[in-house]
Design a protein around this nucleic acid. Sequence first.
RNA 1: GGCGGCGUAGCCAAGUGGCCAAGGCGGAGGUCUGCAAAACCUCUAUUCAGCGGUUCGAAUCCGCUCGCCGCCUCCA
Length: 468
Amino acid sequence: MKVYNTMTRVKEEFTPLVAGQVSMYVCGVTPYDYSHIGHARSAIVFDVIRRYLTSRGFRVRTVRNYTDVDDKIIARANQEGVSAAEVGERYITAERRDMEALGVLPPDVAPRATEHIPDMVALIGRLVSRGVAYVVDGDVYFEIRRFPSYGRLSGKNLDELLAGARVEVDERKRDPRDFALWKAAKPGEPSWPSPWGPGRPGWHIECSAMSRRYLGETFDIHGGGTDLIFPHHECEIAQAEADTGTPFARYWLHNGMVNLGAEKMSKSLGNTLAIRELVKRVSPDALRVWMLGTHYRNQLEWSEERVREAAHALERLTRLVHDVQTFWSGAAAAGLPDALRPFRGRFESAMDDDFNTPQALGVLFELSRPLYGYGERASADPDARAAFVAGVEELVTLMRTLGLLGPGAELAGPPLEVARLVEARGEARVNRDWKRADQLRDEIQGLGWLVEDTPSGPRLTRKAGGAP
RNA sequence: GGCGGCGUAGCCAAGUGGCCAAGGCGGAGGUCUGCAAAACCUCUAUUCAGCGGUUCGAAUCCGCUCGCCGCCUCCA
């Protein structure tokens, strides 16, 4: 299995530190507002990576954090006249709901920065005593020039960094590129005690401290959006490695941004589309298929129209699953026919190549073709039926690897009302009362279901459009 | 200015040295069907932004040009 490592800028063979186990840390959100499509992409990308690794037999331990102490949270709290903790709590709760709606598996650990302040204080203390950090008026800064490889992940040259620095000038810092580990409390801000006086942690320290607590000094995969490469991940590395002297994360994976129009979607630009609004309009699986249709490292342009197309494409797959459930749920599956055997291997080759989901999805669609062939003959030919059931089982397995067909997916049967209408239409057709049959079909369609007559009987599917 | 990425059919998007350039959406014709729908069959890029070069051979490697985006500041 190969993964692209941002650190080395090349695809590398993936070998976890401990055979059979993978430790993965993914940067989560700063909960000061509702999560948007960009967060959804990151979550879905790493959800798929996690699921795939699991399907390949790895025991995967995942951590996704909440950075619930930050300037923006404080600003929001002040603006609303509530506590920062309340703001954090509100958006963490919302984020959890969003993730569930998207079919993203909860991480094994979802630590909050505010619950790990002592770990951070301890880490900062060690950095100070090692001489890589210094204290000024209750602030603590990391001294960049004490960590020579600073800039390696992002490919930044330290001198140029200084030249083009748009960093605010702070005379107290030894070097403008030094970053804050600890910020002395200002009036009205939440603070915690520390050897340097009351204050709060800087932005990057929480990830260094929490990843270490839950995954150890060195772990396998560190993920996040490309926008975190600098300075966030760069600083995480500096903090962690300056203390331990051992490598921090072994593989750095970064997902591309979601753009709106030709511009990056981000909270600060105010051009976001919140997940909670999004899931009202499109199904989670359609959204997932749309996202996975582009490689995770590429940029992706938001378009509801593209998601609708994805929803339509997805139906080619889900219809097969429905057909088995509707017509052959009790039928015995045979072994997978030889003709269908290569698909899993092709799927895995695609995924093994830096999680090439567009290609993997292509394999699924190719698999659907022969499957429809078996489905056509299923009622007349028991062999075809057994092959059909076995083949669709295989399809379901692969789809689930991508996180499709989860609990959120619409696999439930039609409401009783619809079922009755279908039955009535069946009778009308037997009586060759076509007018009534068509009328009933229209009624059923009005309720959001599509009836199709197949050799095995009427097939019911939810109408296209992607709505949940 | 520095670093990184992208430009493949009407649209989206894989492919990164050599079988006919995946797959999806859309479109065209046909089979099937009471009519539909779906499915099935066939078709829909002699060509990969442009120009040079390397090679027996390039969308794929190299150079240049044009266009677009991201990071360098809070950000998934």
